[in-house]
Write a protein that binds this DNA or RNA. Structure first.
Lengths: 134, 134
DNA sequence: CTGGCTGCAAATCTTTTGCATCCTG
DNA sequence: CAGGATGCAAAAGATTTGCAGCCAG
């Protein structure tokens, strides 16, 4: 696929499968999710390859690493600034459209270098919220 | 110590050592940090005890679990709402005083149950920022 | 005195690494 | 055809668990 050429790394069949799995994926998959999905096409792919590809994508700014799941790392092909909610019941992560403005006091701006900031929420997703209230 | 009576769990010497280590601690220690610290007083304490105590404290709302370190879980005895910055260089976590107001759209409020929300920042802490610019 | 807590060791889970071989550009 | 990518297996790290014995309330 030419659409992946611009990433600037060797486009192997395994990497293509990973990229296609991630493309437009808003499920915030873990390395294991990605591994198990690509396994269907490439029964010999290894975690080493998956992690190496994820690292290469992160380095090129094509993938975000999410740490709101306390159990393992998750990945997000959407690198635009947005907010997440971690569902404490089903452990899934959801994109949520919220608005906010952060005021960084002068003391913070002077002393820290802030490269990223985003809002993390936790609670219950729509389907778990319904089950909860029954 | 009577100040820990109100937690509502058995106050063993090991737990007291953990509580004293955590009290007022704003270094956001990991389980390993806590383990190694208590080890000085109790050379036979185990990770099982540390993790069991941390779980008991979390359940009673006396301890917050932080997931902004991508490598391991960190803990914070300050359970009031506040913001963190993870330093990408030294891997430490800092409390930062920032102000913000989040607007949750009607669609979000209707469909999700949001128990917590906070701001996560990453970048460089004061000392790493200085080294960086040299 | 009893249920919860402790400590040990083993298990589990996630992520990383060394290395020989392979294949994209 | 060279350097980066792959796959295997082993290692490293973090966290959990089973269980026998212990002790705070």
């Amino acid at each position: 696929m030419n659409k992946y050429r611009e990433i600037g790394f060797k486009l192997t069949p395994q990497r293509l499968a990973i990229l296609e799995y991630l493309d437009g994926n808003n499920n915030h998959p873990s390395a294991d999710d990605i591994y198990r999905s690509v396994l269907k096409k490439f029964p010999t792919i290894s975690f080493a390859t998956v992690y190496a590809t994820l690292t290469a994508l992160k380095k090129r700014g094509k993938l975000a690493e999410i740490s709101s799941d306390p159990y393992k790392r998750r990945y997000d092909p959407d690198t635009r600034k947005h907010s997440h909610l971690h569902c404490d019941a089903c452990n899934r992560i959801f994109d949520i459209p919220i608005e906010y403005t952060i005021v960084f006091p002068e003391s913070v701006r002077q002393n820290f270098y802030i490269s990223h900031s985003h809002v993390e929420c936790s609670g219950l997703c729509p389907s778990c919220k319904i089950h909860e209230s029954k």
